[in-house]
Design a protein around this nucleic acid. Sequence first.
DNA 1: CATGAATGAGCATTCATTCAT
DNA 2: TATGAATGAATGCTCATTCAT
Lengths: 212, 212, 212, 212
Amino acid sequence: MVSSIPLAIVPTGEDDSAKRHQIMDGARRVFMDLGFDGASMNEIARAAGVSKGTLYVYFADKHSLFESIVERECLRQGKVSFNLDPAGAAETVLRDFGRAYMEIVCRPDGGSAVRTVMAIAERMPDVGRRFYDRVIAHTNQRLADYLRARVKAKELVIDDYELAAMQFMLMCQATLFQPYIFQAKPVPTSEQVAAVVDSAVRLFLAGYRAKP
Amino acid sequence: MVSSIPLAIVPTGEDDSAKRHQIMDGARRVFMDLGFDGASMNEIARAAGVSKGTLYVYFADKHSLFESIVERECLRQGKVSFNLDPAGAAETVLRDFGRAYMEIVCRPDGGSAVRTVMAIAERMPDVGRRFYDRVIAHTNQRLADYLRARVKAKELVIDDYELAAMQFMLMCQATLFQPYIFQAKPVPTSEQVAAVVDSAVRLFLAGYRAKP
Amino acid sequence: MVSSIPLAIVPTGEDDSAKRHQIMDGARRVFMDLGFDGASMNEIARAAGVSKGTLYVYFADKHSLFESIVERECLRQGKVSFNLDPAGAAETVLRDFGRAYMEIVCRPDGGSAVRTVMAIAERMPDVGRRFYDRVIAHTNQRLADYLRARVKAKELVIDDYELAAMQFMLMCQATLFQPYIFQAKPVPTSEQVAAVVDSAVRLFLAGYRAKP
Amino acid sequence: MVSSIPLAIVPTGEDDSAKRHQIMDGARRVFMDLGFDGASMNEIARAAGVSKGTLYVYFADKHSLFESIVERECLRQGKVSFNLDPAGAAETVLRDFGRAYMEIVCRPDGGSAVRTVMAIAERMPDVGRRFYDRVIAHTNQRLADYLRARVKAKELVIDDYELAAMQFMLMCQATLFQPYIFQAKPVPTSEQVAAVVDSAVRLFLAGYRAKP
DNA sequence: CATGAATGAGCATTCATTCAT
DNA sequence: TATGAATGAATGCTCATTCAT
């Protein structure tokens, strides 16, 4: 290809074209707000600022657009790097982790993603499973790895790391996440989160701290 | 023809008519499988074994049929009476409660109800809130009441009863409920439940048991 | 069959049963208010104070119920006896006739009947034709007969009696009936009617009174 | 393929797009034949030669499609310019007006429009009123204006111009319009119209011509 | 005869998807 | 590539009609 003045713009066809991102950003909002069935391709096109036809240039159908979005969400949420320094003392590290974790779980559209994926999991089990594996189990694994390090460091005594990690993660949510996701209470404040996380840390260490 | 006077008048049109129950049973299945939007009135009629028109004899519209079902689900799940004898020792009572609780949470369609309600909570906040209040908060309250009794009995030391109760309830779910609801793992076995609940009891008592 | 004590009450099956009238009265209101298509058998049953099923005991279907009502309306409106004394002077008789005629044409549900029948005339030409023949043409004929008598009495000179009669009838409606039926103005008052009728009489006699 | 540059850009989506007209033409037929309730969007789509979905691209719903058609009908019927030369002698001008007026009133679908609008006027008063104002009252006003000019020219003596104009318009319809609209007689012939109009002119002038 | 529960065809309307430009 | 007009199947819902009681 020598010509530098192309007669036609060659489409990139890339997965990462700006247009593709633009569509996914618009679609994400609509899907998270209205759910898979509640979202219409029309609304998605409007939210994305493209024509309906363009949607089908980048995605085969509604289903695969949805899957792509969940996939990206998995990547993003899975990528969040919690500060789990294996050398850090449990009390501090767990407290910081708990607060950061709750920040994500309860941030305005974090709940939407969980809710949306959960809702569709029965009809699209792959989507549900991937989300679980790549977001929840992934975070759980990272925390479990930290706990293993602290056991090695003789600070903690734990036999089932995944279980312990999940116990801690769930205790951080106690009285906060469920009311929020069921729309029974608003997003918790930082103070509320701090109090609940502190209580979780106390309970966790009371049970798992190595006895002298 | 022996008699033209029927021996019993069949009551009709009542709120508790058999037909109404039949419709709700069919609709429940479809709603729980497909979600509010995914469920079509046609499919519901078929599942209930009645004609589409009959649906509208008993329920004003799809929305109110759905609400009735969630309402009934609340009543049913709220009615479950856990054996929370205030005089019973925490170790036994919590273990039994935990197992019974998980039985309900993970029974084949318990998850579906939670999932379906959670999914629609953003668009139908009343439905979400009522479900939370009458099922989750209700159970939490009963457990909190038990804990208060054990604190009075000097067995436990707790400052926030609701928080402690929810910590225990969530720990019972650890590694079991989320994979199940995201379709990442099948319904947990009794053995798995027992192990997780035992761990939760241990951790809970390590933190909240009164020191001698 | 000899028994004089029937096991079941024998239905009269008569056309003039009270129930039949009751149904027609209710149905009339609904049909006239909402038109043939707009009226539902449900609403008719409610308006008539009978069950939906009973409607079908007395009438084969919606269509024939409607026809029966129009038929009765024809009879009623055709039966109205205007005081057209052949010996009475035209000025007085026409003025009285005009007022009485407008009374009927513009009475609250007189317009509804005309409107309803007119609306359906294209799809049910028999209904339209019968209404025209038995109400409008009938009244026109009676007035034409009166005019003939006055021509015989040398008071008037007319060559086409039906045409003259209709000219008078329509002039009586001028500026009153159309706005009323198109909902552009409310039912005219007696004073308005009187003024318009007086003008019609004047114009009519100016043209048709015998010259001395 | 000779050229990829089209010679003319086809404008689309306009209010006056060919498609929109095509739909209105088809819908007009169906509405006028069957009335508002009797017309189904399915039938309208078929009559217009478009799919059901396309109907909703151009019109928000059935109601507004209907209103658009009546509005257009008003414009069309209101636009008809009768030859009402204020300098013309009443006898000629009224005769020509009467014939032209009856031509419109009785043309195959002129009656349908009146009938359809009249039928719905009770339930859609705005539609009825607009039609009355913009078609009937409008024509009446133009004729009244002419009569005023002839009064000024000393040819006629009239005190209520609108009333006189409507008297003339209605007399032109005598024995012709009502049977036609009630489907009791076919569309009148030109000869019938001429005879009735001539009679109306005679009667009108007998009453309103200035005495010498 | 009278009822009203039950039906299913039909309604207006929406929406994922296609395709000519 | 990007468009948006067009489609027609599917949706929630209504209603004339039937029929067991």
